[in-house]
Simulated scan of single mutants.
Amino acid sequence: MKYSSTKPETVVEYLDRHLHQVIAHRTRAAIAEAIGIPPNLLSMILAGKAKLPLIRVQQFAEEFKADPKELFQLAMREYQPELLDVIDRLYMPPPTCGMSGSEQELLLVVKSLQLNPAELRATVAALRTYTREVTAP
C-alpha cells in the first residue's frame, strides 16, 4: 500500500482537475457569468491569487461538474481550518456508537491525515484488501 506524503489537494488543484470537463464547451467568461462573478475574478481564483467565495461554492460546483460538499470542505480546510474543526465537532461528531476503542482510534488517525476524497477512497480500498489478506485462511 502506498501512503501519500503529499499535502491535501488545494481548491485550485481541485478546480483545475474539473476545468477540462467544462472549458471545451464554454468560455471562461461564460462560466464566470453563470457563477455570478466577474471573469477576472474567475481567472484570479483559478490562478490561486484570490479565494473562491464560499457563498458561490454551489455555483462553482455546478459549473465545474464537481461535488459541492467536497469543494466546500476543501475551501474551508484551506481558508478557515479552525472554523471547519469547530463545525466538524459541533455538527459532525465521529460515529463512535458501537465502535471499539481501537476502531475509534483508527478513525481519528485517518481523519488526521487530511486526505482528499480520492486518497481516502484509495486508502479504504487498500485497507479492505489488507483485511482480506490477513483474514484469509
Score class of each variant (00 low, 15 high):
50 A>M: 05
115 L>P: 02
125 A>E: 10
82 E>H: 12
41 L>E: 04
129 T>L: 10
34 A>C: 05
87 I>T: 03
81 P>N: 05
100 S>C: 04
7 K>S: 08
61 A>T: 05
5 S>N: 15
10 T>D: 06
63 E>C: 09
17 R>I: 05
33 E>Q: 14
111 K>F: 10
103 E>A: 14
95 P>R: 14
116 N>E: 04
79 Y>F: 09
45 I>F: 04
20 H>Y: 11
112 S>D: 07
127 L>N: 04
114 Q>S: 11
36 G>M: 00
83 L>A: 11
70 E>M: 03
34 A>D: 08
56 R>W: 08
76 M>P: 00
72 F>G: 08
126 A>E: 12
137 P>R: 09
65 K>H: 12
35 I>G: 02
83 L>E: 10
9 E>A: 07
96 T>G: 05
12 V>S: 01
42 L>T: 02
68 P>N: 08
69 K>T: 15
79 Y>P: 02
101 G>T: 10
30 A>K: 09
26 R>A: 14
88 D>K: 14
67 D>Q: 01
44 M>W: 13
110 V>S: 05
90 L>V: 09
89 R>S: 11
89 R>K: 15
97 C>S: 15
24 A>H: 09
1 M>W: 07
119 E>M: 06
8 P>W: 02
80 Q>S: 11
88 D>G: 11
70 E>R: 03
14 Y>N: 05
28 R>H: 11
48 G>Y: 02
93 P>E: 00
124 V>P: 03
131 T>L: 13
43 S>E: 12
33 E>C: 06
91 Y>I: 09
78 E>L: 01
91 Y>G: 15
95 P>S: 15
102 S>T: 12
30 A>V: 13
2 K>P: 15
75 A>E: 02
123 T>F: 10
53 P>R: 01
101 G>P: 04
77 R>K: 07
18 H>M: 07
103 E>I: 03
24 A>S: 11
135 T>L: 14
9 E>Q: 14
136 A>V: 10
128 R>F: 13
42 L>N: 00
89 R>L: 10
100 S>E: 01
67 D>P: 00
127 L>A: 11
46 L>N: 03
71 L>P: 02
37 I>E: 03
123 T>A: 13
12 V>C: 03
39 P>D: 07
27 T>V: 02
77 R>S: 12
98 G>W: 02
108 L>R: 13
112 S>P: 04
60 F>P: 00
2 K>Q: 12
136 A>L: 15
54 L>E: 05
62 E>D: 15
7 K>I: 06
118 A>D: 13
69 K>A: 15
128 R>E: 15
116 N>C: 05
59 Q>A: 14
119 E>Y: 01
65 K>N: 12
82 E>N: 09
116 N>M: 01
52 L>M: 06
23 I>N: 02
74 L>G: 04
62 E>M: 11
35 I>E: 01
88 D>Y: 08
72 F>D: 10
84 L>S: 02
106 L>C: 06
7 K>A: 09
35 I>L: 02
110 V>M: 08
99 M>T: 07
66 A>W: 00
69 K>F: 13
13 E>I: 00
136 A>I: 10
60 F>N: 00
